[in-house]
């Protein structure tokens, strides 16, 4: 009898984003993605030419709405302007991505996506439960309505990415090897 939940969902689907007064979950996650670009070091060749964009790619359904675009608008990483790209199908992900965000819609596809990216210098981020154990480099977890990071350092290292201690210190480190 989860009628209430069902009903409230029905009530809210269209209204909730407009009402949220405090930061919403994906507002904060968008800011985290922006911060990852500052606190992770990519190999120089991965960033490409001086004016090449720094791409954050969202796979599957986009839970951010406009939040991510608003967050990175006018910002840059070492002179590379941000770009946000969206891919319905994981098969379409291009090598131009620097961060790949794997949302809840890709629950069953997670391992496949991580595997397809191989050891390329792409930071994988997901909010699927236990995705850090399943090979994702950074996982968003929630604890008491606050966001926590779970970081699979070995997976990042295998891709040639260095994660700053500023990010590692407050986060939970997961030991699993890259999947």
């Amino acid at each position: 009898m989860s009628v209430l939940r069902a009903l409230v969902l029905v009530w809210l689907a269209g209204v909730a984003p407009a009402l949220a007064a405090g930061p919403t979950e994906y507002q904060v996650k968008a800011v985290f993605l922006f911060n990852f670009a500052q606190f992770v070091v990519w190999p120089p060749q991965a960033l490409g030419a001086a004016d090449a964009p720094f791409s954050i790619c969202i796979v599957g359904e986009d839970p951010f709405g406009a939040e991510l675009d608003v967050t990175v608008r006018g910002e840059n990483v070492q002179g590379h302007p941000f770009a946000v790209r969206r891919y319905r199908d994981p098969g379409d992900i291009e090598s131009a991505c620097h961060i790949v965000f794997i949302g809840a819609s890709q629950l069953t596809q997670l391992e496949k996506i991580v595997k397809s990216l191989g050891d390329r210098a792409i930071l994988t981020v997901s909010d699927i439960d236990h995705s850090a154990e399943r090979g994702t480099m950074i996982q968003f977890a929630s604890e008491h309505n606050r966001l926590r990071l779970r970081i699979n350092v070995a997976a990042a290292k295998a891709a040639g990415l260095t994660i700053s201690s500023k990010l590692l210190r407050p986060s939970q480190i997961i030991g699993a090897e890259a999947g």
Partner: peptide, 10 residues
């Protein structure tokens, strides 16, 4: 950021 209470984290 981690200390922020966010809406609809659940």
């Amino acid at each position: 950021l981690m200390g922020l209470e966010v809406t609809s984290v659940s």
